[in-house]
Lab assay of single mutants.
Amino acid sequence: DETGKFLVLALYDYQEKSPREVTAKKGDILTLLNSTNKDWWKVEVNGRQGFVPAAYVKFL
């Protein structure tokens, strides 16, 4: 159920650099879980949760 969740689009490829991050490919649609940090947003992609740089994604 996606009610109340926001989707964001990956603008660039991002390769995770730590276990707390997730890899995303340009064009991926990610479920935004938390955007309270202006630099790192928590997302879910391909069943995995983790952080990506906020500058790499935008709201749909």
Rank of each mutant, 00 (worst) to 15 (best):
D1L: 13
D1V: 14
D1T: 13
D1Q: 14
D1W: 14
E2F: 14
E2A: 14
T3Q: 12
T3W: 12
G4D: 11
G4I: 13
L7P: 01
L7E: 05
L7K: 10
V8R: 00
V8H: 04
L9W: 04
A10E: 01
Y12G: 04
Y14R: 00
Y14F: 07
E16N: 05
E16G: 15
K17W: 04
K17H: 08
K17I: 07
K17S: 10
S18H: 11
S18V: 04
S18Q: 06
P19V: 10
P19I: 10
R20Y: 14
R20Q: 13
E21T: 08
V22E: 02
V22M: 05
T23C: 10
A24V: 15
K25M: 09
K25A: 07
K25Q: 08
K26C: 09
G27Y: 04
D28C: 11
D28T: 06
D28N: 06
I29T: 05
I29A: 01
I29V: 11
I29R: 03
I29Y: 05
T31L: 15
T31W: 11
L32K: 01
L32H: 02
L32T: 00
L33C: 12
L33W: 04
N34G: 06
N34T: 06
N37G: 09
N37S: 09
D39Y: 15
D39C: 13
W40N: 00
W40E: 01
W41Y: 10
W41M: 03
K42S: 05
K42R: 10
V43P: 00
E44F: 04
E44Y: 07
V45Q: 04
N46H: 09
N46C: 09
N46V: 05
N46K: 07
N46G: 10
G47Y: 04
G47I: 06
G47N: 05
R48E: 05
Q49S: 10
G50Q: 01
V52G: 02
P53H: 06
P53Y: 09
P53I: 14
A54T: 05
A54S: 13
A54Y: 04
A54R: 09
A55D: 11
Y56T: 11
Y56H: 08
Y56V: 15
V57I: 10
V57L: 15
F59C: 15
F59I: 15
L60W: 09
